[in-house]
Design a protein around this nucleic acid. Structure first.
Lengths: 214, 214
DNA sequence: ACGCCATGAATTGCGTACAAAACACGCAGA
DNA sequence: TCTGCGTGTTTTGTACGCAATTCATGGCGT
């Protein structure tokens, strides 16, 4: 990978995470000039990243106004959520790859972090952990196309939970998450990737309901 | 829609179609300067379009070398094909929209074009018609996310058939297509979108087999 | 006091010059 | 003749200046 594309990847991931973790709340205006200054480059590479974020639906750029972080509410995202559920289930059917011991260790670590979170709940740390779980689960299928699409849809909907957390009970949510990740751990330890995928689908469905998407 | 974004959309669609219809065969080098001259603009908007095409997997840009149309063979695209099949089926389940009389007329027109193609087979005209069928079928679901994803995957695999046609029997392929589109017409006229989707999935699966993807 | 227009400030979109990188080609030397 | 290096050419990547667009603000007219 060349230096330019490395920088692009880094910048893209940085801005994407800031948006999905609400460092940039919906409506925030991102200035190309400011970002260029912060990342010690010119507007050109920044514009390239922003164009991709716009393609992914995370920002919207308008001439003469600025680049604005898009809004994300559960009602308009209902269809995306539906699709995510189906794709989560597909991950258990389309070319799953053999489960390695390292996978179980990885998930073990995530489980421990979830339990630590129950002791000291924190919205942002929860969101980060949820993101890591997603990345781990997508790594379990060897279907590259499915991974790409799932990622894309995940980042489109990732903010919704964090935006809704003031209306929810954080401790309760964390406990539910910890239980879910343990269920997934149990299924994975038997090597049953289809069960893992079905659990994931069920969890996405239930979180959608809790968020008021009906 | 602003003038700039209109130009972007037009340019993007033009290049995408040229790639998918093999006006630009895999390996072709696209010069930013040449495209800028052809479309009477500067390199800047062209680069933006090429960046998006790269994100979509249709070209690959490398510093100092050029922007090269990617290769597309059935073996490496097998996973994408698998996912396309599943999504085609999902289109019949996820928020299908009511079938309008205009829809049937539209499909009627496509059927007639398919029959005309049986009389005078032509690979390119066939590919165009296939593209139109895809666009029509994706318009039958109101799930915007599913439409976007299906489109993306369709354009990634669209070239494969056209590349393989020298090894196939064109007349036979056209006849199969004409039969398929009539089947879909029959299903649609009964308003059974689930059946339409299942037929589509079956057709994709069979074409994958004929292309040697196993 | 209210509405309207003009003007200025801020921002993105575009065009162009230059830097960085990769390859083709020729030439020198063994 | 073959190998290796250096240089020139072509291409994409970056930086920056300017054009186009939008919005806020203030002044003017009624």
């Amino acid at each position: 990978m060349t230096e330019a594309s490395e920088r692009f990847t880094r910048l893209h991931a940085a801005l994407r995470d800031r948006i999905c973790l609400l460092d940039y709340t919906p409506g925030t205006r991102l200035s190309e000039a400011e970002l260029a200054t912060e990342f010690k480059t010119s507007r050109t590479p920044v514009r390239r990243v922003l164009a991709r974020l716009e393609d992914e639906g995370l920002v919207q750029t308008r001439h003469g106004i600025g680049t604005i972080v898009t809004d994300a509410d559960i009602r308009t995202m209902a269809q995306t959520y539906e699709l995510r559920m189906e794709l989560a289930q597909l991950a258990g059917q389309l070319s799953p790859r053999p489960v390695q011991p390292a996978d179980l260790q990885h998930l073990d670590a995530l489980c421990r972090q979830a339990e630590a979170l129950v002791a000291t709940p924190d919205p942002r740390a929860f969101a980060v952990l949820n993101m890591h779980l997603h990345q781990f689960l997508t790594s379990l299928t060897s279907n590259a196309a499915l991974c790409e699409v799932s990622d894309r849809l995940y980042y489109q909907t990732a903010r919704i939970w964090l935006l809704a957390i003031p209306d929810l009970d954080l401790l309760s949510e964390v406990q539910i998450f910890a239980a879910e990740i343990w269920q997934i751990h149990t299924a994975l330890s038997t090597g049953d990737l289809r069960a893992v995928a079905l659990l994931r689908r069920a969890h996405i469905s239930m979180s959608f309901k809790r968020l008021g998407g009906f």
